[in-house]
């Protein structure tokens, strides 16, 4: 049986207490929320913290507050089940409900939190393996080694950002509240990530992600599509989040964010810009999808092949935009439906 390594467990009741505990114990401590990402990693010895600071008992981290028209606030400790089933989330930011509802499996969504999903440790099929497997292949730089096994010539780690919710939050223009010993700050979700498989979060070690702040979403249309082998369990090997607002049939604002094709969610800025001021015609969508796929740079370290994931980026972006435009999924079916 795979078992956890020993640790001491601290159960703070407030965010203030949690960050103090973290500061007190230094680099040997880690936060844990739902544990669905951290505990498997600990069982495989990707992490061996001596102290865990459990966030589960902190009431203020749980729940969805506010109004969609002024901006919903989602506590980082809210479970993915609760996010995906929340009536206001479903009505006003359906892409977020969809993304949260597509994470792993029903029991895992009862345990895992949205904060945990945003901060999920980037994955790699050279890395998310047992200690013995990693010893056999030769440890990689993300844990116990000093090279990247996906790109041996590279000086950085290429583990894949595997969060479903972050691309959606980014596309919506959401912000994150971070609380640390030195105070708190609110940053755009877009600036929460760094392009590195190890050092992937622009968050200090002792900072807790406490809240996700959604902007007012009046009239915003959004979609999330996820590529994976099975309809359950699997992490995304490509995620496409699109959010746009329309004004008189023309696109006013647009953001396309790609997930699971780099070490952080990646915005297709150029493609989004092409949409602004235009009508969502099939021809424009096809053009934009091609441009959007450019920042997609998958490598051979997940399920399905990376050339396929790259190719599907274009298909999925087109499909997401077509859905928002009320068009059928595939251009080939257009006439039938019309």
């Amino acid at each position: 049986m795979m078992r956890l390594p020993p640790f001491t467990y601290l159960a703070p009741l407030s965010v203030g207490e949690a960050v103090r505990m973290m500061a007190d114990h230094g680099p040997e401590a880690m936060f844990v929320a739902g544990g669905t990402d951290l505990y498997p990693n600990m069982k495989r010895r990707q992490f061996e913290p001596k102290v865990l600071v459990g966030l589960r008992g902190i009431r203020e981290l749980v729940g969805v507050r506010g109004e969609a028209t002024t901006g919903l606030v989602i506590g980082a400790g809210t479970t993915l089940t609760d996010v995906s089933e929340h009536p206001a989330v479903r009505e006003h930011v359906p892409a977020l409900a969809v993304a949260a509802g597509l994470v792993s499996t029903p029991p895992l969504r009862n345990m895992g939190t949205i904060g945990g999903n945003v901060c999920v440790d980037p994955r790699c099929n050279y890395y998310n393996q047992s200690y013995q497997w990693r010893r056999a292949i030769g440890f990689c730089m993300k844990k116990d080694g000093d090279i990247c096994l996906v790109a041996p010539g590279s000086s950085r780690c290429w583990a894949v950002s595997s969060t479903d919710t972050a691309p959606v939050l980014w596309s919506l223009g959401a912000r994150a509240r971070l609380v640390g010993v030195g105070g708190e700050r609110v940053v755009p979700v877009a600036s929460l990530f760094k392009d590195d498989g190890i050092d992937y979060l622009a968050k200090a070690r002792d900072e807790v992600l406490t809240e996700i702040l959604l902007p007012p979403v009046d009239g915003l249309r959004c979609a999330y599509l996820k590529l994976r082998r099975r309809g359950s369990f699997d992490f995304p090997v490509l995620g496409v989040a699109v959010a746009l607002s329309l004004d008189g049939g023309r696109v006013k604002t647009a953001k396309i964010v790609l997930g699971a094709v780099a070490s952080q969610p990646r915005e297709a800025v150029e493609a989004g810009a092409l949409l602004v001021g235009e009508r969502l015609t099939p021809a424009l969508i096809a053009e934009v999808a091609g441009v959007a796929a450019r920042p997609s740079k998958p490598l051979d370290n997940t399920d399905l092949t990376h050339p396929y994931r790259k190719k599907m980026t274009k298909v999925f972006v087109a499909r997401a935009l077509r859905r928002l435009a009320g068009l059928p999924d595939s251009p080939e079916n257009e006439e039938e439906v019309a």
Binding site: T36, R44, T105, P106, L108, N110, M111
Partner: peptide, 23 residues
């Protein structure tokens, strides 16, 4: 024991959770 199969599911306050990832 890694949350990848569902075999160890139990109910906590009526909700299915994976006992292999619960403390």
């Amino acid at each position: 024991e890694l949350g990848e199969c569902g075999t160890c599911t139990v109910l906590v306050d009526g909700q299915p959770v994976l006992s292999c990832l619960a403390l």
